[in-house]
Structure formats: structure tokens, C-alpha cells
Amino acid sequence: MQALVVASHGSHLNPDASAPTYAHADAIRETGAFDEVQEAFWKEEPHFREAFRSLEAEEVYVVPLFISEGYFTERVIPRELRLEGWDPSLWDSEGTSAESATLEAGDVEKTVHYCGPVGTHDAMTDVIVRRAERVTGDPQVGPGVGLAVVGHGTDRNDNSAKAVEYHAERIRDRGRFEEVKALFMDESPEVDDVTAYFRSRDVVLVPLFIADGFHTQEDIPEDVGLTDDHRRGWSVPADVDGHRLWYAGAVGTEELLAGVVLERAAAAGADVGDALETVRGDVTGTGG
């Protein structure tokens, strides 16, 4: 038997923080690829601490639903899961190339495959593009359009900026969009000045965040000038300084992210059958 644990931050305050985690876990449940699928959280229940004990499977794949390789994925999660002998060097990563490490956990007799976060997997690039397709309603979006991948920025020495830049560069290399930039909330180049960084009239903004919350639903919309007051909402597209801004909301809410979770587990040795094809099913970029 094999089990999947989707590890996520969660929140004591915001009931929507865990919505993407449940949605992706459910999508994977429905494929039947794993005998058991379990959500686990830092700030909700079940806590990381108790992530394994309700599982009957002996083989467990843990995929962190986090953007970057850093404090949470390299320290907090392995410690709370009691992964014996864990060291970040086992991922052998420069900040965006983690794969997986196979370890044992201190409180259960199981083999645990601890995977890198979804945020730094190559397939995340496609999720960002899919997000742009969805928000514009155009499966071919790209020519003549600018794309801003928006990240938090320097945060507890995380590699969060690296992940944002990594995907921006990969999308740029594909030549599909007119211009591609990595922008940040807390460091330069700042998302506040988004219109100054683009020549294209239409610019899609995709925040590289797992869940919608204060950052994606309050800070960024106001900083960018989509609205003066987030409580009144904003239009998509919104006219700002002569540009049309298509603001996508957190990339983590995109259905295709379930595919990245599966890719992570499959790369670590999970048998996922044809589940990947199933979760990638909606290729229109607009469908529900």
C-alpha cells in the first residue's frame, strides 16, 4: 500500500487557506492512485506531527504544498514529521532543484519519501501559464502580452525569490509571452511598479502563492493599483496607468497543481498509473 501526504501551511484565522490543499488532495483521491491520501498542516489539524499515524500504508510520499525550498520545507516539516537523519543536503539542491529523500519517521514504522515542494518543480511553470490562460480566457494567450510572476521576496533567508525567477526565466525561454518579469512584494523589482516594467498594454499577473489570503487578496491588489480598497474588489482586467492588468490570484488554486503533486510523488517512486493524465484533463485553460 502507498499513501500520499500533502503538507501545507494552513491558518488559525483564514478558513480558506487550506481550500487548495483539500481540492488538490481530493482530485488525487478521485484518481485512486493512492490507497490513502492525507492532508497535514502546520496551523490546522491534522498537524504535521500526527500526519502519519492514521495511515495504514507502509510506503508514504510527502509532498509539501509550498513555493520554495527554505525554512518550512527544509526545517519545520522534516522536524515535525520526525524524519530521522534528515538534512537539507539530502535534496542536493541549489534552491530550485530538490527531488526527494527516503527516510524513516520516529513515530511510525513506515518508509517516507520526502519530496521537494511543488513550487520548485519544473511542472509548476505550466501551472503558471495555465493560470494566465484561465484568467484571460484565452488558451493561446502570450503574443503581445506581458506576464509578471509575483513572489513574496526575501523571507527568512528562503529561496522564495529563486523559485519566482526560475519559473519566469523558463517561461521567457519558451518565447510565448512578449515579456516576462519576476516581481516581488518585499524586494526590488517591486510589484507596486508593475506598469513601469512592461511595454505591453496587456499584462497578466500570476502570484506564486499557494493559497489566496492577505497577500494575494489585499496587499497585491492595492499595491498594484487594481483597487483602492480590497474590500470593494477589482475588475479583471483592470485599467492601470494605460495598461490592462489581468490579475490571476494565487497560482496554488489552479487545478493543474494536483498534477505537480503527482509528478513529485511519481519522481520519488510512487506508482501513479494514469492519474497524471486524469488530473491534467482540462486543457482548455478555462473550464471549471
Binding site: 489539524e45 491534522p46 498537524h47 500526527e50 499515524r53 492514521s54
Partner: peptide, 11 residues
């Protein structure tokens, strides 16, 4: 039961 009260059965 696990969805209402996570990990209570295991503990």
C-alpha cells in the same frame, strides 16, 4: 470521524 476529530482514533 477523522475529518471531524483528526488523529483521535490513532491516538
Amino acid at each position: 470521524v477523522d475529518a471531524f476529530y483528526p488523529a483521535t482514533i490513532a491516538n
